[in-house]
């Protein structure tokens, strides 16, 4: 999969190499996450459905998916959760502990499309060391997923 970093004028926090991840103090409200572009292959949609033990036919059988009113098979919600987690922890680093993932689904992720994930730090909770990130995954039809992820980050050396 390709991972692209867009040229934002807004400050982006990018994790320094050789470190276990971002420290709480290194993150500011308004920081943008590096964009993540995910090609939605048929294999990805089926493999992730099975990895999440979701055997609903609409996630692997095109004929039955159409019969049930869909255009094709589509990604299951457990995978949307998993990809949103991957998107945020790859930015935050391995020390980050995921405290919440809250998502709403919109346009389905159909095979052949691409989902581009973007995110921005929207809040910080100093007492808990928690950082809230708003995320959005867009495909050609619109927003597939919108929501927030909360991660707990370690205090930095200066703390």
């Amino acid at each position: 999969m390709t991972e692209t970093t867009a040229n934002h004028t807004v400050r982006q926090t990018v994790r320094p190499l050789g470190r276990p991840g971002l420290a709480y103090d290194e993150v500011a409200v308004g920081d943008r996450l590096p964009e993540l572009s995910i090609p939605l292959t048929r294999t990805l949609i089926v493999a992730t459905a099975i990895a999440s033990r979701d055997y609903q036919d609409v996630h692997h059988d095109p004929e039955l998916a159409v019969e049930r009113g869909s255009r094709d098979i589509f990604m299951n919600i457990l995978t949307s959760n998993g990809l949103v987690e991957r998107f945020v922890t790859r930015w935050a680093g391995p020390a980050a502990v995921v405290a919440a993932i809250r998502i709403r689904l919109g346009a389905p992720n159909y095979p052949g499309d691409t989902m581009v994930l973007t995110g921005e730090v929207t809040a910080k909770d100093d007492a808990e060391g928690r950082v809230e990130v708003s995320v959005r995954g867009e495909n050609a039809l619109g927003a597939h997923v919108t929501g927030t992820v909360v991660v707990r980050l370690p205090k930095g050396e200066n703390a």
């Binding site: 609903q56 009113g69 299951n76 959760n81 995921v98 919440a100 993932i101 809250r102 689904l105």
Partner: peptide, 14 residues
Amino acid sequence: SVVATDSEFEFHRE
């Protein structure tokens, strides 16, 4: 037919 629309997870521990 069924489709999931929302999931709001709070994780208490890993």
